[in-house]
Design a protein around this nucleic acid. Structure first.
Lengths: 193, 193
DNA sequence: GCATACTAACTGAAACTTCAGTCAATGTGA
DNA sequence: TCACATTGACTGAAGTTTCAGTTAGTATGC
C-alpha cells in the first residue's frame, strides 16, 4: 500500500492533469486524496512545495515507465529503442496523458514561478542527455556536442508536439509520425556529418 | 485611438505575458489599463470573460503578426527569409517576449479550455503552412506533404524551445542555434529525398 | 507518555464582484 | 436659447467569496 505522501502526490498528479496547475486547490487535493487539508501541510511546506514534489513525482514515474521497458525480454536495436523511448510519451494511456498534461502545466507555470525552474531545468537536462546517449548508440561516431544538441531538439520537439496533442490541435498518430520524421532527420544529420 | 475595450485587452495581454493567466488580477488590470475596476465589469461579464476575450485577442494578434510579415516583400534569399521568420520568435525584445509568453499561456490554457481550442488550432495551422511555403521556396522539388510535415515540426519545435527559454532552462543564443540546426536538418532531408 | 500521523474547524488576507452615484454628452419641448 | 430629461461611460468603496495556511486537539503505535 502506498504511503500517505505518495497517495497525496498521486492525487496531485491526477488533479494537475485534470485542472492544471492553475486549477489545483489544496482543499480539492485533500478531497481527491481522501485526507484533510491539514495533513497536506503536515507533509508539505506549502502549495509550491506540493507542486515541486508533484513535478519530482511525475518525473520519477515517467522515468520508471520508460526504463521499465528497457528491462523487457527482447533487447532492442539502438534505433528501435530510441524511437520507443520517445514515442512512449505520445500514447493515449491515461497515465501517459496525465504525465504529459502535468508536465506541460509545470513547464508553463515555471515561466512565472522562479521556484519551479531549477528542478524543471535539471529534469529536462537529464532527459535530453538520456536521449543524446541513445542517439550515440545509434551513431557512435558522432561528436558529443552534436548528440547533445540533437537530444535537446528532439525532447523540445516532443514537448511542443505533446502540447498540440493535448490542446486538441494534433492527432496522436500524426504527432507520432512527425516525431519519427524528426528522429530520421536528426540521425541522417549525425551520420552525414 | 483604440476603443476602451481594446485598451483593456491590450493591457490584459501585457499582464498575461508578465504574470500568467493565473496571475492576472482584475484590480491590477484596471491600473495597467488606466481605468477603474468597475469599468472592467461594465465591459466584461466576469474574470473568465476577460480571460476568454484576452486569449482571443492574443490569438488574433498573433495571426495578424505572422501574416503581415509576408507582405514585406523583403528582398531576402528564401533560406534567409525562412530563418528570419522563425528566429523572429526567439528574441529578447520586450514585444517578442510578451507575445511568446502570452502564446505559451494560451496554448497551456487550451489544454483545459475547450473554447480556446478551435481558434488556436487554426492559427497554428496557418503558421505551419506559412513555414511550409517558405521551405518550399528553398527546396522547390520537395513534395507538398513533406513540406507540410517539416513546417509542423519546425513550428512545434519553436514552441518547445520558446517555453524552455521563457522558463529559464535555455539560453536564448543556444535556443537560436538549436533552431538553426533543425532548419538545416529539415532542409537536408527535403533535398536528399 | 511520547512521537508520529491525522482531522475538523478556523483565520486572515487577497481578490472577485456589485452597486450607488458622478459626469459629460446628447436629446427635447417651450 | 434655456431648462429639464435621458443615457452611456465610468468611479471607488463596500460586500462577498475564495483559498492558502494555522491551530488545537484526537488517535495510534511503541
Amino acid at each position: 500500500m502506498a504511503s500517505r505522501t505518495t497517495q497525496i502526490l498521486e492525487a496531485a498528479a491526477r488533479l494537475v492533469a485534470r485542472r492544471g496547475v492553475r486549477g489545483l486547490r489544496v482543499e480539492e487535493l485533500a478531497t481527491e486524496a481522501g485526507v484533510s487539508t491539514g495533513l497536506i501541510y503536515y507533509h508539505f511546506k506549502d502549495r509550491t512545495g506540493i507542486l515541486r514534489h508533484t513535478l519530482e513525482f511525475i518525473n520519477d514515474r515517467a522515468e520508471r515507465y520508460t526504463t521499465s521497458h528497457m528491462a523487457d525480454a527482447a533487447p532492442l536495436a539502438p534505433r528501435a529503442e530510441l524511437e520507443e523511448v520517445l514515442l512512449l510519451e505520445l500514447q493515449d494511456a491515461p497515465e501517459v496523458r496525465e504525465n504529459s498534461a502535468a508536465w506541460g502545466e509545470l513547464r508553463a507555470s515555471a515561466v512565472f514561478d522562479e521556484v519551479l525552474r531549477e528542478d524543471l531545468a535539471r529534469a529536462t537536462l537529464v532527459w535530453a542527455q538520456e536521449v543524446a546517449a541513445l542517439l550515440g548508440r545509434v551513431t557512435p561516431m558522432a561528436p558529443a556536442p552534436a548528440l547533445a544538441a540533437a537530444g535537446e531538439r528532439l525532447t523540445a520537439l516532443l514537448e511542443g508536439l505533446s502540447m498540440r496533442w493535448l490542446s486538441g490541435g494534433l492527432e496522436l498518430g500524426h504527432a507520432r509520425d512527425l516525431l519519427l520524421g524528426a528522429i530520421d532527420a536528426e540521425l541522417a544529420r549525425l551520420q552525414g556529418k
